[in-house]
């Protein structure tokens, strides 16, 4: 376990219970934030003089199938003045994969949230335009979820001939 950077302890003392966990394994400062606090935490991180996390890098999700809660939304932030990096995680339950949008704080997260919705099926409450980002509108399901059947095909147009497969339909979804 590495030494905790100061801004992480400051964050923990500022928000208390609403930060579930902090650590800095492999020098990666990480804070697990409660879902309802995420917008507030982001706004504070961006505006406070001691943190100034002004650059939004990435938002994505991880599907820990079989674990409770199942999903983890990961947000990466950078502070340009201090050269700090921070990773925020929000854990979401399988039955209720909804999280408040952070567009009011970081407008750049708009398309990332759409991508996250497209591929993981995580809804962002308050997002102005939550459509699919990459896949066609007619696509059924969310393919980066671990229980999406990998042999499933959803062609948009009629194919000239049928696809040749090594062993038809024997491709099972990855075990949990």
């Amino acid at each position: 376990m590495q030494e905790l950077p100061e801004y992480l302890s400051v964050l923990k003392s500022r928000f208390g219970d609403r930060i579930e966990e902090i650590h800095a394994q492999h020098d990666d400062a990480t804070a697990v934030v409660k879902r309802d606090a995420i917008v507030e935490v982001c706004a504070w991180l961006r505006d406070d003089e001691k943190t100034l996390f002004d650059l939004f890098l990435d938002l994505t999700a991880v599907d820990y199938i079989g674990r409770k809660p199942r999903f983890e939304v990961v947000i990466h932030l950078v502070s340009i003045p201090f050269r700090h990096r921070l990773r925020l995680k929000v854990r979401l339950d399988e039955d209720d994969p909804v999280m408040p949008t952070i567009i009011p704080v970081y407008p750049a997260s708009n398309w990332f949230e759409r991508e996250c919705w497209d591929l993981y099926g995580i809804k962002f409450d308050g997002h102005p335009d939550l459509r699919r980002m990459f896949l066609q509108e007619t696509f059924v399901g969310h393919p980066l979820r671990k229980d999406y059947p990998i042999a499933k095909r959803q062609p948009l147009i009629e194919l000239r001939k049928s696809e040749v497969r090594r062993n038809d339909e024997s491709v099972e979804p990855r075990p949990a």
Binding site: P143, I150, R153, P155, R160, E163
Partner: peptide, 13 residues
């Protein structure tokens, strides 16, 4: 095998 978004060969089109 795993590409949910890829056409398995352009000769299908």
């Amino acid at each position: 095998e795993g590409g949910y978004h890829v056409v398995k060969g352009v000769d299908l089109i």
